[in-house]
Every structure is written in structure tokens, then in C-alpha cells.
Simulated assay, not measured.
Amino acid sequence: MTTVTLSLADRDDVTRRALAAFDGEAQGARISFASVELLWKTLTPKRWELLQALAGQKAMSIREAARRVERDVKAVHADVHALLDAGLLDRTAEGSIVFPYDAVHVDFTLKAA
């Protein structure tokens, strides 16, 4: 099973992981957000539902993704582009979309202000 980890990370954390990767240390699939607000702005409930429908599936059209989540194609199209921009979805050479993971792990700690 291929799992992507969504996390909060500042520039120093991302740089540290990149340098470790260049030194040959496996980092695993990870997508980092600068703040919890950005993470929640990007991953709305409807987008989570879309990722769940795409997880572990082969590449498909936006129309097929909309059918699977029983939503309007235009609304799913907007969500797909937000997820593409965030690096959560990939586009194939044929123009289909794919979520190349079977699972999502969210990793962050909420601290007192």
C-alpha cells in the first residue's frame, strides 16, 4: 500500500528533508503545508471525499470522478484543479487524473496559542 503523509512544515523542515533525501535517506511520500489554515482551506470536506473516491484507483476522467462522488462535473473540475495545484493529484499524458496513493496519513500537532 502506498501512503502519502500530509503534514505542516516550515521552509527549514522542507529543506532539511530535501537534503536528507539527496543524501540517500528515504523520505516517503509527503506533501507539506505551511499552516493548518492552508491545509484545511485546500482539503475541504468535498475534496476529501474526492480523494477517498480516487484512492487506489486507476487514472480516470474528471467526469468519471464526478460520477463516483455523485456531484456536478463543473464543481468537481474546480476541486480537481485545486488538488492538482496542491500536488495531491497528478494528470496523465492522456489528460486523465490520478491520485497515486492508496491511503492518506495526516500528521500534525495542535499546540496551545
Results as ranks from 00 to 15, higher is better:
Val14Glu: 13
Gly95Ile: 02
Tyr101Pro: 06
Asp107Leu: 11
Gly87Asp: 00
Val73Met: 09
Arg67Trp: 09
Ala75Thr: 15
Ile62Phe: 03
Thr92Ser: 02
His77Phe: 07
Val76Ala: 04
Arg63Ala: 15
Ala82Arg: 01
Leu8Tyr: 04
Arg17Leu: 15
Asp72Val: 12
Gln57Thr: 14
Asp10Thr: 08
Arg17His: 15
Leu110Val: 14
Ala55His: 10
Thr109Leu: 13
Arg67Gly: 15
Lys58Ser: 15
Ser35Lys: 13
Ala75His: 11
Lys46Tyr: 09
Arg91Met: 10
Glu70Met: 08
Ile97Thr: 13
Ser61Met: 02
Arg30Glu: 10
Ala93Asn: 12
Lys46Glu: 14
Thr44Trp: 01
Ala113His: 08
Ala34Arg: 12
Leu38Tyr: 10
Pro100Asp: 04
Val73Lys: 10
Ala55Asn: 05
Phe108Cys: 10
Thr109Lys: 09
Ile62Ser: 04
Thr5Tyr: 05
Thr42Ile: 03
Thr5Pro: 09
Val69His: 03
Val14Trp: 09
Leu51Tyr: 09
Arg47Ser: 02
Val73Glu: 14
Met60Asp: 03
Leu88Lys: 01
His81Cys: 05
Thr3Gln: 14
Lys74Asn: 08
Leu88Asp: 02
Arg11Tyr: 10
Asp72Met: 10
Asp72Ile: 11
Leu51Met: 14
Gly56Lys: 02
Gln27Ser: 11
His81Asn: 13
Glu25Ser: 12
Ser96Phe: 05
Ala59Glu: 13
Phe33Gly: 04
Asp12Leu: 15
Leu50Ile: 12
Asp79Asn: 01
Leu110Glu: 12
Asp102Cys: 06
Ser35Val: 13
Ala113Tyr: 04
Ala82Pro: 00
